[in-house]
Structure formats: structure tokens, C-alpha cells
């Protein structure tokens, strides 16, 4: 049953599904690993773990605040708890994350599914557009936003091996694999996916696949883009941001998250302090989402491939005029 090829995250898997499959493979290597769920195992991908490791699957019921502090207590006894629920429900227990986990430096891993407009039909209440901002603000917390099944497979191993509190975003919609098999996730490092001298795009999560397509579109217009997949938002890779900004002098960030507090803000903090550079943040503009299919929502709110491309072209025109 274990290590069957079906249980490896692959193209067309959602990030939550790839994450759930990765856990099965890792559970054998890490006997201290336990998974906590708040009655949404089918929605977060951990139903695979529940089926294969029922004794290490802790059902907490629909009670997220207790779940987070329980996870911290379990970590105190040497276990490695992975806490899973929808990202918005982790926000419900934000203060428990702050005190029981981060302030206490407990080795608890939070994995939020249902992030961004990618959630789709469940609507604005479930589409978490503030999680990166919220968890990034807490001391001792690291924040990871993988871009594809290949990356989340590797990041899942990392969060288990790493000692300390981490928040990782997964995702709901099926994703085309956008990274090569040779791709290596490195904590705290951005990765160049293309090189160019006209413009830097920094993206994360589901927006990286879209940005790869945008790079191709812009290439046809003779705009050579340097694309960085920034899968660790905290600690942010200052070096690669500054290095690329020096080369291109123009930076665009793209994320399925509010433009307040997320990747765009993290990049802005680095650039404004160390290498002031014109910056365009593409993301959800301080508003909630609504019901609809993920691709329809991305289009309406300006974070699909076409909108990203058009926003960049218009911005470049204005920048050139300036």
C-alpha cells in the first residue's frame, strides 16, 4: 500500500493533494510525525494519512483554537504535529498560533489549504487572502508558499525536518506542473526560473505557473524577464531580490493574496530599505473575493495570465514615460 506510485504528488494534482500524498511517504521516515485535523481531512489532503496511519491521525473536531494549543502540547512531548485546516480557520486561532506556538517556540507545523481566490465557489469567506500577511508578522514563524506539486513534495519534507514553527500554504485547484523535475526547493531561497535584463517578476504559489506563461508572452514582445519563484516568504531572500533589481531596475510581484502584507510587501520592504527600485505589486487589491470558478475569479480580480501580462505592459509604458 505504501510508496505506491499513486501516492506521489504529480501534475494535475492540487497542492493539498500533493501535500497529503507526500505525508504518506514521509510518515515512515518520521515516526514522531502526527497529523491534526478539524473535520476537514477531505479538504486538506490529509485523508490519505488518516487512511494509512489512523493511530497517528488526531481528530480534533471543529475546534481550531483547542487544536492549535493541543498541537503545541504534543510537540512538547517530542512529537512533530502537522496541523491542517482551511487557512481562514487557522486565522480563527491566530492568537493560539502566536502564544502557544510561536512565543513558546514549539515545533508545530501549520498547513493551510483553501488559500486565495484559488478556492473558488465556496466564496469570499473561505478565500483566505490575508494568511501570508498574518503569519509573517509573528516572530519565530516562517512562511512557505510552494508553487507546484513538485515543490510542495519537497517543502513538506523540509517542514518536518526543520525545527521550529512554520506556516505553509497549500491550495485547492488542480495545477499543471510548472517546475522541472530537477527543481530543488531551498528554504529561504528564491529560485530563478528564467533570466533576463528588462524586468524582474517575483511570484509565489499558484501565480508562479501563470508567471512562467507571462514570461513567454513578454518574450514575444521582446521583453526579457527574469522570473524568480519566491517560495519562502519569511525569511525572505534579500540577496536575490537586490541582485536581480540591480540588473533589471524594475520589479513586479505576483501573488494570489492581498497586496497588503504578502509577497509584494515583503519585497517592497527589502527594496525600499536596501535598493529603491520601481515596483508593481500584482495581487488582490484590498478586497474580499466571491463565488466563482478559480479561473473566472483570477480574471475578474486581475491575477490571471492575461491580466498579469497587460498590467505589466501598461506599467512599463508609464515607467518609460516617467
Amino acid at each position: 500500500m505504501l510508496r505506491s506510485p499513486d501516492l506521489v504528488g504529480k501534475s494535475q494534482d492540487s497542492l493539498r493533494e500533493a501535500f497529503g500524498k507526500s505525508l504518506i511517504l514521509l510518515a515512515e521516515d518520521y515516526p514522531s510525525l502526527v497529523v491534526l485535523d478539524a473535520d476537514v481531512a477531505g479538504g486538506t489532503g490529509v485523508h490519505h494519512f488518516r487512511k494509512n496511519f489512523p493511530d497517528r491521525f488526531i481528530q480534533c473536531g471543529i475546534a481550531e483554537q483547542n487544536m492549535i494549543s493541543v498541537a503545541a502540547g504534543m510537540a512538547e512531548t517530542g512529537l512533530i504535529p502537522i496541523v491542517t485546516t482551511f487557512a481562514v480557520f487557522l486565522l480563527r486561532a491566530y492568537e493560539q498560533v502566536r502564544l502557544s506556538v510561536a512565543y513558546s517556540q514549539m515545533n508545530v507545523k501549520l498547513v493551510g489549504s483553501h488559500c486565495g481566490l484559488d478556492v473558488g465557489p465556496d466564496g469570499g469567506s473561505a478565500q483566505c487572502l490575508e494568511d501570508i500577511a498574518a503569519f509573517r508578522a509573528i516572530p519565530n514563524m516562517s512562511v512557505i508558499v510552494p508553487a507546484s506539486p513538485i515543490e510542495i513534495n519537497q517543502a513538506t519534507r523540509f517542514i518536518i525536518e526543520h525545527k521550529g514553527p512554520i506556516y505553509m500554504r497549500s491550495g485547492r485547484s488542480p495545477l499543471e506542473e510548472c517546475l522541472d523535475n530537477s527543481y530543488k526547493f531551498e528554504f529561504g531561497k528564491g529560485k530563478y526560473l528564467s533570466r533576463g535584463s528588462d524586468l524582474t517578476i517575483i511570484s509565489c504559489g499558484v501565480c508562479t505557473g501563470r508567471s512562467i506563461q507571462v514570461v513567454k508572452d513578454l518574450k514575444e514582445l521582446d521583453i526579457n524577464v527574469e522570473l524568480i519563484n519566491m517560495s519562502t516568504i519569511k525569511p525572505i531572500d534579500q540577496k536575490i531580490i537586490i541582485e536581480s533589481a540591480k540588473r533589471t531596475s524594475k520589479v513586479v510581484t505576483v501573488e494570489d493574496h492581498s497586496i497588503i502584507g504578502g509577497l509584494g510587501s515583503a519585497v517592497a520592504e527589502v527594496l525600499s530599505e536596501y535598493h529603491p527600485t520601481p515596483l508593481k505589486r500584482i495581487g488582490v487589491k484590498d478586497t474580499f473575493g466571491e463565488s466563482g470558478e478559480p479561473d473566472e475569479l483570477a480574471c475578474k480580480y486581475g491575477i490571471d495570465q492575461v491580466s498579469i501580462k497587460n498590467t505589466i505592459i501598461n506599467w512599463l509604458k508609464n515607467e518609460t514615460k516617467g
Binding site: 497517528r56 483547542n66 494549543s69 493541543v70 504534543m74 510537540a75 512538547e76 512529537l79 493560539q96 512565543y103
Partner: peptide, 22 residues
């Protein structure tokens, strides 16, 4: 770590479960 009520209670519950599981 305390300062927000009830979290210690749940923390203790987590320790109890962790000890029992192991």
C-alpha cells in the same frame, strides 16, 4: 507560556495525549 486564558489547558491536553500515544 501563558497570558491568554485557556491555552495552557489545551496545551496540557496536548501533553497528556502526546504522553499517552508514546
Amino acid at each position: 507560556s501563558t497570558g491568554s486564558l485557556a491555552q495552557g489547558f489545551s496545551f496540557a491536553i496536548g501533553e497528556s495525549l502526546g504522553l499517552k500515544l508514546q
